[in-house]
Amino acid sequence: MDVSALRQELGLSLGEFAAKVGLTSRGHMSEIERGLTQPSVRVAIEIEKLSAGRLPAASLNDDVALIEKFRGLQ
């Protein structure tokens, strides 16, 4: 699953989805959907919540992935 598929599954417009994850810019959400930019840590976590964990924040943001990697080493 990717961000676009999640948005379509939820039946949300780009603007509605952006608002649900805390973005004010539909254009920024479009860039995230198309893989042109990574969402911030906060937005990645909100997307994970919307997907009920099916789209992990670590798959969307390298910083989250790095934190999870280090947590696993402890």
Score class of each variant (00 low, 15 high):
30 S>V: 00
65 A>P: 04
71 R>E: 14
55 L>P: 02
27 G>I: 07
51 S>L: 01
10 L>A: 06
8 Q>I: 07
38 Q>Y: 06
30 S>E: 13
12 L>I: 03
54 R>W: 00
73 L>E: 14
55 L>W: 01
67 I>E: 12
1 M>A: 06
29 M>E: 11
71 R>Y: 11
12 L>W: 12
49 K>I: 07
25 S>E: 14
54 R>E: 08
30 S>H: 15
30 S>L: 07
66 L>V: 08
6 L>C: 01
15 G>F: 00
19 A>Y: 01
32 I>Q: 07
27 G>A: 13
23 L>N: 03
8 Q>R: 14
31 E>K: 14
1 M>Y: 00
27 G>C: 09
41 V>R: 15
47 I>F: 03
35 G>R: 10
65 A>M: 05
58 A>I: 03
9 E>D: 14
49 K>H: 07
67 I>H: 11
28 H>T: 13
69 K>Q: 14
54 R>Q: 10
40 S>I: 05
15 G>A: 14
12 L>M: 13
40 S>E: 05
8 Q>N: 07
12 L>R: 10
24 T>V: 12
36 L>Q: 15
22 G>M: 11
65 A>I: 02
50 L>K: 07
68 E>V: 05
47 I>S: 03
41 V>Q: 12
40 S>K: 06
52 A>H: 15
42 R>V: 11
64 V>F: 05
57 A>V: 00
17 F>W: 02
28 H>A: 12
47 I>R: 02
72 G>A: 13
26 R>W: 00
33 E>P: 06
43 V>C: 12
1 M>S: 06
29 M>C: 13
57 A>T: 07
72 G>E: 15
5 A>V: 10
8 Q>S: 12
32 I>F: 01
